[in-house]
Design a protein around this nucleic acid. Structure first.
Lengths: 205, 205
DNA sequence: TGTACAATCCCCTAAAAACAGGATTTTATT
DNA sequence: AATAAAATCCTGTTTTTAGGGGATTGTACA
């Protein structure tokens, strides 16, 4: 049986690279590519790939979101996340949204083929480096914050003071202060500076 | 005359992609690739490419630094910066360090060939999107900060208070305060939160 | 040898954030 | 209906920042 592969990435060079890497793989059929979420979903209405290689950073919707959508409509398709970054947060997010694998863009041909094979087999695959990161970061918590906290966090990062945030959200300044305290505690940050730095690096903002 | 091309990038998929895109270009000779700064410099001791395609994000030294080094030792080599990001700060930095061009990783084959040709011609090249960004951001200043300010900024982002920074740098707290004020002014930030957010996004931290 | 700029230091005041302890009311979820 | 979690509010105190105004020393550059 041939494995039908489709790729979603907004970089020509990556698309070309992967095509070149996979072209001579046995039992693989290159179905083409999409460069954004919209044209990917359009493609899927008429075609059925077995595996989608999905970039996490897309121009319109994020790859994470797209992954969720695809899985909801076509649960049989195996999705392998692609990214330049071996950040825990990315890996977790896409795997939580139904992906079956995660491969870094500096993966070798062998790793890529391995990933495809493993996922076709019904198993999950993490590229070596990704697996290392996950292992290393076991226990290093990614804070779970609430809607309201996220809202406050975002306004803090925009430079608003507690007072201004209170006015904007029609709540008391003491409430804002409480949210702020909780944010500091959840991120284990000593002050606003660290809070914003960590939140930025963990893609909360 | 054939144009000898060398590429420095730490992503196999990108290397493959570019090779695939350039393979059938007329008058181009693919010399190979390096995946980090060290092996790039080693290669240059024995080989003389005309053009180096240089990724900005490298694992060891940053592409910006490497660009500077290459230009210092081999001023004749034309360097084209490669990046996923069309951020003003990147474009400016690499162009200021001797690069002759800047191409995004989602550039088409034509753009890439155009860039190579233009640079071989002795001219500067910015990819369409990069040029747009630069144009759009004319006047939107990227602050110029001093060594000491950068040092203080970094310590602020790590959560140190003025007092702690003063102790660490063996200077008075009032000096730290002054640096802090200057940072806020240069970034046009109202408070620490915005300062850190802007500094992070502009890659100062 | 000016001049600009970086780096250092100082005073004062007001505003904001951090820290410590609460409590009540909604809103989900089982 | 009970429980948990989220969101709201409160009274304090202390520490830290932000904003305003300075000044001095050294270095680099033209």
């Amino acid at each position: 049986m041939t494995t039908r592969i489709f790729i979603v990435d907004d970089h020509y060079m990556i698309i070309e690279g992967i095509r070149s890497l996979l072209q001579h793989g046995k039992g693989l059929e290159w179905m083409g590519h999409a460069m954004n979420a919209t044209s990917c979903m359009a493609f899927l209405q008429t075609h059925q790939p077995h595996i989608i290689l999905l970039d996490i950073n897309l121009p319109d919707v994020s790859g994470i979101e797209l992954c969720k959508e695809i899985k909801a409509k076509y649960p049989k398709i195996g999705i392998i996340g692609l990214s330049s970054y071996n950040q825990q947060s990315y890996i977790n997010k896409i795997m939580d949204n139904g992906a079956s694998g995660y491969v870094l863009k500096n993966a070798t041909k062998e790793e890529l083929l391995d990933a495809i094979e493993t996922v076709m087999d019904g198993q999950k695959y993490l590229s070596e480096e990704a697996a290392l990161i996950v292992k290393k970061n076991v226990g290093s918590k990614i804070p779970i914050i609430t809607r309201r906290e996220k809202e406050v966090l975002s306004l803090i990062s925009e430079g608003l003071t507690n007072n201004q945030i209170a006015t904007k959200l029609f709540i008391s300044i003491t409430t804002v202060d409480t949210h702020r305290k909780n944010l500091l505690a959840k991120f284990e940050a000593k002050n606003t500076a660290t809070l914003i730095r960590m939140a930025t690096h963990l893609e909360f903002i």
